[in-house]
Design a binder for these strands. Sequence first.
DNA 1: TCCTGTGAAACGGTTCACAGCC
DNA 2: GGCTGTGAACCGTTTCACAGGA
Lengths: 213, 213
Amino acid sequence: MNRRIPDSTVRRISHYLRALEVMGVQGTPTVSSEELAQQGGTTAAQVRKDLSHFGSFGKRGLGYSVPELASRLRDILGLTCRWRVVLVGAGRIGSALFEYPHFARRGYDCVAVLDNDPEKIGMSWGPVRIRPVEELELVVDALKVDIAILAVPAEAAQTLAERAVAAGARAILNFAAVQLRVPAHVHVAYVNLVVELEALSFAITQNGKGRRK
Amino acid sequence: MNRRIPDSTVRRISHYLRALEVMGVQGTPTVSSEELAQQGGTTAAQVRKDLSHFGSFGKRGLGYSVPELASRLRDILGLTCRWRVVLVGAGRIGSALFEYPHFARRGYDCVAVLDNDPEKIGMSWGPVRIRPVEELELVVDALKVDIAILAVPAEAAQTLAERAVAAGARAILNFAAVQLRVPAHVHVAYVNLVVELEALSFAITQNGKGRRK
DNA sequence: TCCTGTGAAACGGTTCACAGCC
DNA sequence: GGCTGTGAACCGTTTCACAGGA
């Protein structure tokens, strides 16, 4: 029940929650740390340690109640309210994200979409009209945006991040292939396809001695 | 120059390479570990330690030659050959990926696209025709695929991963929100939007005391 | 007995600090 | 003097092992 939670713990808890939700649909009443570990790709001791950061949710000898633990994990992850998100960049990745069904279902409301392409500005994506990127500060401030998603070219990301933060954004999900410099109170998550692909080609090169013949 | 390279090191090297490529275009001849660290969002000691796993590429008192180090890092990451990739899932994320300009430019050739939607099968994406997902084994085997990209629903991912591996794939980039179970020699990279978003909502909830009023 | 919760030990990655070479 | 390369110290996470409650 202490402070300073490892980032790895938070990510695993997100996985545990998803496994619990599947079990909930299937009607499984209780689950052991061992079973959760298998779903989450980790160990039973790790599951128990992760959960112990936040309290004692299980019953010794019995395990965890699936609906109760799911509810507690939703609380911990901050999924009991809806978050206001602005999407910056209405390109391919932006549109894929916008239509991602889990996105709205899991509590994230895309309250605005911005782009700098005159061809796109004014278009409607469902209920949302694409606005010029100049309105970033206006949107973040007036619509009380919590999270800015940057799906823009690498060169533009740093400036846009600074502008979003200055206007009040508290977290950024960055798809651009650059490391962002932001104040310590702002949280950044990275989705970097180039890094992931290069990690794979590195691993194959090391192990498998080059590509397939 | 030893074995067992931390995953974190590989990812940082990918960042260093991108920074070096920008410097190369700008004509910067040499760079210090301090400068590289700033671009990569880390420390000078970390840069030197990362590089020391693979050899000694710098000159004491002077720094690193930008083009030479870039070339060495490309070797290390396995970017000197082109990798054959199959894309499984021709939905929003799949199409965003397929059109991602860096994808082909950085050495990844998407040799086939598969889907299970009869509406999509037979459509052409540029030079590639979308094939039925039943042909996964055929494609991986005949086209000597190295990397399978799974942009499919979570329920389908595990089975498709096993099929791709059985047919000879050596690495998987998984966009589905599940942990995959694969043999140890197969490398998996994850891109999980739900986890990233939940890590952000957790961070805001902890620090900022809930969403903006 | 079964399975959780948790201190303590083990491990591995990061940071430090300095020797060594330009 | 400046900057790299690297063993050693440090520190945070994971794993172990067991006490304790159902």
